[in-house]
Simulated assay, not measured.
Amino acid sequence: MQPFVYHGLPSRVVFGQGSLSRLTEELEHLGCRRALVLATPQQQQQARDVLEQLGERGIGLYTEAAMHTPVEVTERAMRVVEELSVDCTVAIGGGSTIGLGKAIALRTGLPQVAIPTTYAGSEMTPILGETRDGIKTTQRTLDVLPETVIYDVDLTLSLPAVMSGTSGINAIAHAVEALYARDGNPVIALMAEEGIRALAKSLPRIASDPANAEARSDALYGAWLCGTCLGSVGMSLHHKLCHTLGGSFDLPHAETHTIVLPHALAYNAPAVPEAMARIARALGCTDAAAGLYDLGRSVGAPSGLGEIGFQAADVDRATEIATQNPYWNPRDVEAKGIHRLLSDAQAGQRPQVGDGGEQ
């Protein structure tokens, strides 16, 4: 076996049906008495329910969380934090809300409780991506890792079927890139393959029966594993492309990951045969890139970036942004190949492994 380094992250996970009932107990465990509850405008009612549950420990709401964690949104939240003398945040929602909690933690050092209602995985990572002036930048620091994560399966039962599918494939992307990460290790590889397997098995069941609690539990378990992978090792081409498309073209996060992933994997495939084999095994297919594309179709996800607002005319600029700063990838990042990759993803073509990621 090759030498490796494994670093476990210091977070507490509470998993199960009805586990939200333990929120006050978890705040007591952290020694917190003045919690600010965070959410997006769309999840304002859930945030109000949480605030009511907290009683005297809940002192306010901030429900302006937005995709890609815009700095201006965080700055408005910081004024509320200061005015209310907040001593912790409770973020309920997906990556947008949890990202806001992380941005506040970076600036204040306040402890966080994350209550994910999607499969995005941000809650398990020491990674924060923020957008300023149309450019999304990412940093990794334990200062933004939530202290406690409460996974309540019941909170995912109302997640719309198509959104569940794209959120779940977004989670799978973390595990896929973990399998060929430069700092990968056998412990994370086990988690990655199991996370892909759990989500690939459960997402089509959720698509046909969104109220299936067993499938929801399996999907949330898989998302936890995939999020742990994202938090433990570095990512590469796929995540770089999605950050570019999200931060500079304002594309929706989960859908972008879902569409780009098969193409990014096809591009990298010649350099990572072992990872390709493990991904295919977890998906139950022979071609990993095609299997991921087919999984997207099975859950009703969009097939091309053109369906979510990315135009063919945007490919040149996206290629330039994605290739202007060097970053590690198992295969050289070449502008011609990335242009073809993005063109194929824009058009929704089925990926095929080939020279330069071409079909």
Rank of each mutant, 00 (worst) to 15 (best):
F15W: 11
G16A: 14
Q17G: 14
Q17N: 04
Q17W: 01
Q17H: 09
G18A: 14
G18M: 08
G18Q: 03
S19M: 12
S19R: 15
S19F: 09
S19C: 12
L20R: 13
L20M: 05
S21I: 06
E26N: 09
E26P: 02
L27S: 09
L27F: 03
E28M: 03
E28G: 14
H29S: 15
L30F: 04
L30K: 01
L30W: 03
L30D: 01
G31S: 07
G31C: 08
G31R: 12
G31T: 13
G31Q: 11
C32V: 13
C32K: 07
R33Y: 06
R33H: 12
R33N: 13
R34V: 07
A35D: 09
A35L: 07
A35M: 10
L36M: 07
L36K: 04
L38T: 05
L38Y: 00
A39F: 08
A39I: 12
T40L: 04
T40Q: 03
T40P: 00
T40S: 10
P41L: 06
Q42S: 07
Q42Y: 09
Q42T: 12
Q43Y: 06
Q43W: 05
Q44D: 04
Q44G: 00
Q44Y: 00
Q44K: 10
Q44H: 11
Q45K: 13
Q45C: 00
Q46R: 13
Q46D: 14
Q46H: 05
A47C: 09
A47P: 04
A47M: 14
R48E: 15
D49W: 12
V50K: 00
L51Q: 14
L51A: 03
L51N: 02
L51G: 02
L51W: 01
L51P: 10
E52V: 10
E52D: 11
E52L: 04
E52A: 14
Q53L: 13
L54R: 11
L54K: 13
L54I: 13
G55P: 05
E56R: 14
R57S: 10
R57P: 09
G58N: 13
G58Y: 06
G58H: 14
G58W: 11
I59S: 10
I59D: 08
I59Q: 07
I59P: 08
I59M: 07
G60D: 08
G60Q: 10
G60R: 11
L61R: 04
L61I: 11
L61V: 11
Y62M: 04
Y62L: 03
E64Q: 14
A65M: 15
A65V: 10
A66P: 03
A66V: 15
A66D: 11
A66M: 14
M67W: 03
M67H: 05
